[in-house]
Every structure is written in C-alpha cells, then in structure tokens.
Computed example of a mutant assay.
Amino acid sequence: MAKSEKRAVHMKGIRSRILRTAENLFLEQGYKTTTIRQIVQDSGITSGSIYNIYEDKEHLFAALIDEFLDDAAKRVGEALADKTPEQRLVAYIAMELFYVEKNPVIREMMYAAHTSPMIMESVIENHAYLAREVWDARRHTKIESLHTAILLAEGAVSSYVLCFDFSEKLDYSSIRKRVMFSILQTMGLDTRETNRLIQYMEENKDLWLDLAEQVLHHSDEADK
C-alpha cells in the first residue's frame, strides 16, 4: 500500500473514531452538554486532530446528522420498497415525529439541528431527492420551488419539536397529525389523500419507531 493510501486509511479511522465517540455522547446526554473536551477524553484523539477535520462542534454534529439522514432514507427505501413515494415520504418524516415525542435527548438534538441554518440547509438538500417523486407528480401554483416546500415542511416539524417545552401539556397526537397534514398539503396532495396518509402514519407507529432505533444504533450494527 502506498504511503498516501496508508495516510488516507489512517485519517478515515481517526474520523470514524471521532464521529462514533461524538455520536455516543450526543445520544447519551444531548448536544448542548457534550463538549469537544469530552470527545477528546473519550476518543483518545487530540483536540488539534479534531479541529483539523471539523471546524467546531456544530460542524461535527452536522456530519452526524448527514449520516443519520442518509441511513434513514436507506432504511425507509428498503423497508417500504413496495410502497408509494408518498408513503415513503410519510415514513421518513414520521420516524422523527414519533421519536421526538418518545425521547427528550433526541428532541434536544433535533432542536439544535433545526436552529442551525448550516444544518437545515443540508437537511433541505438531503430531503429534496426523497420528495421529488411526490413533487413532480403534481402541479403547483402557489409554491414554485421544491426547496421552499421542504423548508416550510421543516418549519412545521420545528413547531412540533418546540411544543414539548411548553409549560402546558398539549395534545401531541393532534399536533402531529396537523403537522403532517400541513407538510403533505404543501407538497401538493389533496385533502382526501392527505387524510389517508395520516391514518397510514398513525397505524404504523411501531414500524417508524423501530426504523428510528435502527438509524440511531447503526454504528452498533457495523461493529458486529
């Protein structure tokens, strides 16, 4: 193996160790609490090496979010290969909606992602290919841009993430359905089809949670 190849393999190993360590810390204690110092201590990688690859904690977090999104799309594609593009889109979003309700640490991580313009820009790009089949099958008069539609959809998801921090406990099931209704209407679906897909989302809660668990523990699978 050439020297340059050995260095590339070495750097890949360092990057992987940084990401896996950060992933474990983020999932255990959330985004805010986790520090670069903790990642250094747990990974054995120096802070200089970490900053040589990632500009700061936000960029490291963004790299993990990209991994999660890619893995989520892959798992949805495999599990729902025989379903419609609309059902796959619902599944992709439902994984986040249901898990946000279940897990406060994931909720905090999603809040951090949704309030980072850099991460949200990446999320919109990532979602575009998944939504395009749904988008292209319909005519749109009010919203001309798929990226704009996805941005509005993510705004709806953000409102769902935020509602768990209100002092008053709300009807999360009702809000979740309304969030999905808003997203599907933004994508151009009519009311009848939208309601049918919301029912599909609610009936398959266990599947969405299972897929989300697989995404969040994908590194465990790779280690086996």
Rank of each mutant, 00 (worst) to 15 (best):
H59Y: 12
F61G: 15
A63M: 02
L64Y: 13
L64W: 11
I65P: 01
I65L: 05
I65H: 02
I65T: 13
D66F: 03
E67V: 10
E67N: 12
F68T: 07
F68Y: 11
L69W: 12
D70S: 07
D70N: 15
D70F: 01
D71R: 14
R75T: 13
R75S: 14
V76R: 00
V76T: 15
V76N: 08
G77K: 06
A79P: 03
A79G: 07
A79I: 04
L80K: 03
A81S: 12
K83P: 07
T84V: 11
P85F: 06
P85M: 03
P85N: 09
E86C: 07
E86N: 12
Q87W: 15
Q87Y: 12
Q87I: 12
R88K: 14
L89H: 05
L89Q: 12
V90A: 08
V90S: 05
V90E: 06
Y92M: 09
Y92V: 01
Y92C: 02
I93N: 04
M95C: 11
M95V: 06
M95G: 05
E96S: 04
L97M: 07
L97K: 02
F98P: 02
F98R: 00
F98C: 01
F98W: 09
F98K: 00
F98V: 00
Y99R: 05
E101P: 01
E101V: 02
K102C: 06
K102P: 01
K102N: 07
N103I: 06
N103C: 11
N103F: 04
P104H: 05
P104L: 02
P104A: 03
V105H: 02
V105L: 09
I106T: 07
E108W: 03
E108C: 01
E108D: 09
E108P: 04
M110S: 11
Y111K: 14
A113Y: 01
A113H: 01
H114D: 08
T115N: 13
T115H: 15
T115L: 09
S116M: 00
P117D: 10
P117I: 02
M118R: 15
M118S: 13
I119R: 01
M120N: 15
E121H: 11
S122G: 14
S122K: 15
S122F: 01
V123C: 04
V123Q: 10
V123M: 14
V123E: 08
V123H: 04
I124Y: 02
I124M: 04
E125V: 14
N126W: 00
H127C: 12
H127I: 00
H127W: 11
A128C: 06
A128I: 03
A128G: 08
L130T: 08
A131G: 05
A131S: 11
A131Q: 03
R132N: 07
R132H: 12
E133W: 02
V134A: 03
W135C: 07
W135Y: 05
D136V: 12
D136W: 05
D136P: 04
R138C: 11
R138I: 10
R139C: 10
R139H: 08
R139Y: 04
K142Y: 06
I143H: 04
E144G: 06
E144R: 10
S145R: 08
S145T: 06
S145N: 12
L146T: 07
